[in-house]
């Protein structure tokens, strides 16, 4: 699992609200990797993903007193992150998309074929409409269950399954050449 089911989240939130900066820093540390990964795969751009993730955490802090501990912390912060990602996309020149995924482009050991494959998969994901992209990203980069995705996105579980199926159909179509090698 990429994302631990951290039962301490509520305690960290409570301590943050009491003014414990260390507690909030711990929350940021715990979630920075998964949130940044989700943002990167949603946006396809390293700088935008960094900004969206940082802004999301700042908003999380500002709105921490509205978090309902009966619900999973990730579901709550994911929705904030998605809003930030949408804002980032609105303010960006589309031609700059996909230009700055440091992880993919800076891997010196990757073969040309592997690099081509990585780039094709990355581009195929970003090319999906948001509703399909986010289920793929949440499933494969945040390892959420159907139910967790439903809670995070705010849609029925049945719709999650349907979107996942459609998203995979589209990805198979986009990557058909790659998948037969």
């Amino acid at each position: 699992m990429y994302l631990d089911q951290n039962s301490d989240d509520s305690a960290l939130v409570r301590r943050s609200l009491e003014g414990d900066a260390g507690a909030f820093e711990q929350l940021v540390s715990n979630y920075q990797r998964v949130l940044f990964s989700v943002a990167l795969r949603l946006l396809g751009n390293y700088e935008d993903a960094r900004d969206a993730t940082q802004n999301a955490f700042i908003k999380v802090y500002q709105r921490l007193d509205t978090y309902d501990s009966r619900y999973r912390f990730f579901s709550w912060i994911y929705r904030i992150l998605v809003n930030e990602c949408l804002n980032a996309r609105r303010g960006r020149n589309p031609e700059h998309a996909l230009s700055d995924d440091h992880r993919g482009s800076d891997d010196p050991g990757a073969s040309f074929e592997a690099g081509e494959r990585t780039r094709a998969v990355r581009e195929a994901i970003v090319a999906l409409p948001l509703e399909y992209r986010e289920v793929i990203v949440l499933r494969h980069f945040a390892a959420l269950s159907y139910e967790e995705m439903a809670a995070a996105i705010g849609i029925p579980t049945k719709t999650v399954k349907s979107r996942l199926h459609t998203a995979r159909q589209r990805l198979l179509g986009a990557l058909s050449g790659l998948m037969t090698r």
């Binding site: 990429y2 990797r33 990964s37 998969v121 994901i125």
Partner: peptide, 9 residues
């Protein structure tokens, strides 16, 4: 897809 892995923040 999963070979892309999570990215380092």
């Amino acid at each position: 897809i999963e070979d892309l892995g999570q990215a380092d923040p």
